[in-house]
Nucleic acid binder design. Structure first.
Length: 288
DNA sequence: ACGCCTACCTGCTTGC
DNA sequence: TGCAAGCAGGTAGGCG
């Protein structure tokens, strides 16, 4: 799926293009896209007539803030995309939800694999950290993200704050980076990229990392995510921005899906292994 | 509470 | 050419 840089790209596009738009109507063609417990018909009735105040991102979700304070969350998961279509653009057989805007455009939620979920919540609670119980039965939008870890690109995400989280964590570092309660927004592409950049082996136990390694990893995570945003995200098959166009970040990746190709640092072949069911790419010579 | 594994879906690529 | 298996950006939920 889209990871942090891809979701951030979509959110910024939408902020530019549909801020202030009014949703005249919505059509849901795959019911399970609408997140429990809201029935799809209720969702449509609730969203009809709403006006978009602002769009941003939390973790890997797009947040559409409405003028009445409610917030629509869009979790794109593996193949979700939010695309603004001008009037007259051909129908999309993979559009699962279509929002008709009052100005004649459409906001289309496209999702080939149908894993993505759209929710509608009362506002509030986004700034507080919250409890896991709240995350299990969300009421306010903040509850949805109550169990999530810190935003890696936020000002408050310091090395010290990152380092604290490593205490007594025996888990291997790669799966830990994918754990959204440890750090939000990092996915399979950028986890591999950050570890390569920091020269840390994906199988290392988290609590075995030295201060210097944690510092390198902190910096690497922020660097690869920012680079991904600058290139409008990494596209392999499905990911596109709200303009419907792929990003160019995939061209600059150092290890992800570069199995057997030479490491950019030492020239030895990049290895691929499966770790907790996820493909993991690394250089066994320069990642220790 | 943690950690590991499966299920959820469809389309594309690969190998016989 | 055809067909089956393998693969994919994620994460709830169930098990031990």
């Amino acid at each position: 799926m889209p990871e942090l840089p891809e979701v951030e790209t979509v959110a910024r596009d939408l902020q530019r293009w549909i801020r202030g738009a009014t949703i005249r109507d919505a059509t849901v063609s795959w019911d399970r896209t609408i997140r429990h417990p809201l029935p799809p018909e209720r969702f449509v009735a609730e969203i009809r007539g709403a006006t978009v105040r602002r769009i941003d991102r939390r973790a890997k979700s797009v947040l559409v803030h409405l003028t009445d304070g409610r917030v629509m969350t869009v979790a794109l998961r593996m193949t979700g995309a939010l695309i603004v279509a001008e009037p007259g653009v051909a129908a999309d057989p993979f559009a699962r939800v279509i929002f008709s805007l009052a100005d004649g455009r459409e906001l289309r939620y496209r999702d080939v694999r149908k894993f993505g979920r759209i929710g509608l919540w009362e506002g509030g609670g986004l700034r507080r950290s919250g409890t896991k119980a709240a995350a299990k039965a969300p009421g306010r939008v903040g509850d949805v993200f109550a169990a999530h870890g810190p935003e890696p690109l936020s000002r408050s995400f310091t090395v010290a704050r990152f380092a604290e989280r490593f205490r007594r964590r025996t888990k291997r570092i790669k799966p830990l980076l994918l754990d959204q309660s440890f750090i939000a927004g990092v996915g399979n592409i950028y986890a591999d990229e950050a570890l390569w950049r920091a020269r840390i082996h994906p199988l290392r136990a988290a609590d075995s990392l030295s201060e210097d390694e944690i510092r390198r990893l902190h910096r690497s995570i922020r660097t690869v995510l920012r680079q991904g945003i600058a290139d409008r995200g990494a596209s392999f098959s499905d990911y596109v921005g709200a303009d419907g166009q792929p990003g160019s970040a995939a061209e600059k990746l150092k290890v992800y899906r570069r199995t057997d190709q030479p490491c950019y640092r030492c020239g030895r072949p990049i290895r691929r292994m499966v770790l907790d069911t996820r493909a993991t790419h690394f250089c066994e010579h320069c990642q220790k």
